[in-house]
Write a protein that binds this DNA or RNA. Structure first.
Lengths: 214, 214
DNA sequence: AATATAATAAAACGAACGTTCAATTAATTC
DNA sequence: GAATTAATTGAACGTTCGTTTTATTATATT
């Protein structure tokens, strides 16, 4: 046999991407074989090489596009003129929504960094750093304006990122909590963690503020 | 050649364990070959099988002993009679100290769960759940006593664990911050996150409390 | 000194790996 | 409807994998 009836390059490539994200997230990049991936798509292994020159290229493509998607989502969600608390809330909401929506792709981007070649690793890390830089800026602005009380901007940013991204480890859609509920709770935890004060008032207002916009 | 001068089973086994933790942490379990591991130890691949029947057994042994070590460390660090804030502080201190001390082993235990057989995965997850259960209990006690204000005990516990364990991702000994400084900052972030109040006073006291014992 | 045992090397096993190549068929273009 | 292009198969390549077997040597025991 050769070309099959109804075969379509675009559809096959999309199927390969989706199957690859799922398989790598479940078994890991090294553990997934090209034959296994091909079988999942319903195609022979050789056919994969029409779309991705090597297994490594496939991984890098998936990661790069995931990072680009994250950047893009944040640029769209970012409020133009807003106080630091408002901006932080937007950052948290976008981060959690994006990561829950693309759980498997996030897993791949976080777990398979070591399977990238050095220069590709650098590229991905650069994108990640750029994204995290905005969070640090928000925290710094808030600290300088006196609405946040953070001891160490960089450390707090890392702690928040780890905390938020960690959602994908345990969150399963359709279980005890909805995305909205999870986001609301994380938002209020975030606001307390950075010691957010709205108009010089105490903690209770942070709760209300957070839940208002979740 | 065969047995080499100065060869010693105990030393070789210890060298295998240490090299395995480092290699798996750096390259991943699937990516590390038995020949690579043997070369790191300075031995032929066949010699490894005197100590571990299969590659999978090696991984499981490393993980199980890491989890047992974590449990043991916490049992020793746990304060006998203490209020929830005191207990939470002890939990955070122990968790961060243990994970920074055993960065590579923690990486293995967190990243290579998918390489375990189903029943072994269950065993490791059971140990992890048992450890995390104590944190949930502390949070619940604090919430009931009115010294913490947490909306969802389970969710808060997960957020805290992710936040604390995340330290190993970016922390490098001998860089900008010392272990003591990092622990102090994480402690105060934790206390703020759970809305800790000491004797009904406000947030500022939480800071002092946290930094006092870091 | 002889014997037993512990620790390793060296070589080999079949299986699976990523990848390439030539052949073949479906869809498109002219 | 003939020629071209797109999509895929099936078979094969050399390499590496985890593991086993057998032989060999160092150490411990008697």
């Amino acid at each position: 046999m050769a070309r099959t009836t109804g075969s379509d390059g675009e559809k096959t490539e999309a199927a390969v991407r989706e199957a690859a994200v799922n398989l790598i997230a479940r078994y890991g990049y090294e553990a997934m074989s090209m034959r296994q991936l091909a079988a999942e798509v319903g195609v022979q292994a050789a056919a994969l090489y029409r779309y991705f020159p090597t297994k490594g290229d496939l991984l890098f493509t998936l990661m790069r596009e995931h990072m680009e998607g994250l950047r893009e989502a944040w640029e769209n969600a970012r409020p133009a003129d807003a106080d630091p608390a408002e901006q932080l809330a937007a950052y948290v909401r976008n981060h959690i929504a994006f990561h829950i929506e693309r759980r498997h792709a996030t897993h791949v981007s976080n777990m398979e960094l070591r399977s990238l070649s050095p220069d590709r690793l650098t590229q991905i890390l650069r994108m990640r750093t750029a994204y995290e830089k905005d969070l640090r800026a928000i925290l710094r602005d808030g600290a300088e304006a006196g609405v946040f009380s953070v001891e160490d901007t960089g450390l707090t940013a890392m702690a928040l990122i780890q905390m938020m991204t960690g959602v994908i480890v345990w969150f399963r859609p359709g279980e005890r909590l909805s995305v909205t509920e999870v986001t609301a709770t994380y938002l209020s935890m975030t606001m307390r963690l950075v010691g957010a004060k709205i108009g010089g008032t105490e903690e209770k207002h942070v709760h209300e503020h957070a839940q208002l916009r979740a």
